[in-house]
Amino acid sequence: MMGIALFKVALAVYLASAVVYGGSLWGRRVMPARFATGLMLAALVIHTSSFISRWFAEGMIPAIGLYDVLSFFAWVMAAAYLAMQLRTKTRVLGAFVSPVICAIMVIASVELGGKVGASAMLKGSLFTAHVMLSITGEALFAVASCAGIMYLLQDNLIRRKKEGSLIRLFPSLRDLDRINYLCLFWGFPLLTLGILAGSFWARIVWGSHWQWDSKQVWTLLAWGLYAFLLHQRLVIGWQGRKAARWSLMVFTALALLLIVGKLFFRTAHNFM
């Protein structure tokens, strides 16, 4: 149960980093945010080792069940955010990303450990690929939304021409837009591949690609909306405020629909 212990430590360090990021916003200083970024990197390393130890313990990639899936979702968000820090200096963006990571980790910990080998049906590399790719895509969209929120706030601050210290603290519009775009650009093909893997797997196991399952409909809707967003960005040339606003709206709508679906519909995806 090494993996569980490491998960708890990672959660604690993520929480610490979120608190320090909060302090950075509160004190209007970048310095704490740098420190918090370091903490998040540490948390990511611990989180990664938790994965690996769980992988070895279970003998398979842990990608089934609420706990593992959400934990992986948080892991991708942290990794994506930190990867962006290599290119752009948007330290304070962590103040928006880290609370989301913490929330997801807390929800994940409700079913701590979970059941990995839930059903023999769910084994197989195609299924694992389906889960990993889809989750990575969706986690990237979550990071895109965080960048989108921050973009809208910074845009508003600059437009209102009031308070200087927050404008200075927040990253530049260009960097935030770039992160939003990159997450969309990479998230979309990953989600597409994830859906394809899932449908091939469904064909093998269930005998058909499509079943009008509520989760399937939701996924298709998400895919369609993000395809639309990416199209608007690449072809129509959406940028800045409009792109940020839309990516935020799409993500919020999808998150709400996911919760509604989970509450009111039965789904073949109930292992997540």
């Binding site: 600059i158 404008i167 200075r168 530049s172 519009l173 260009r174 960097d175």
Partner: peptide, 21 residues
Amino acid sequence: AGNAVSVSYAAVELAKKIFGN
């Protein structure tokens, strides 16, 4: 030393917050 105290420098600071580099 963090904040611009001349009009032209304030403009440059703002430009950086829009365009980054």
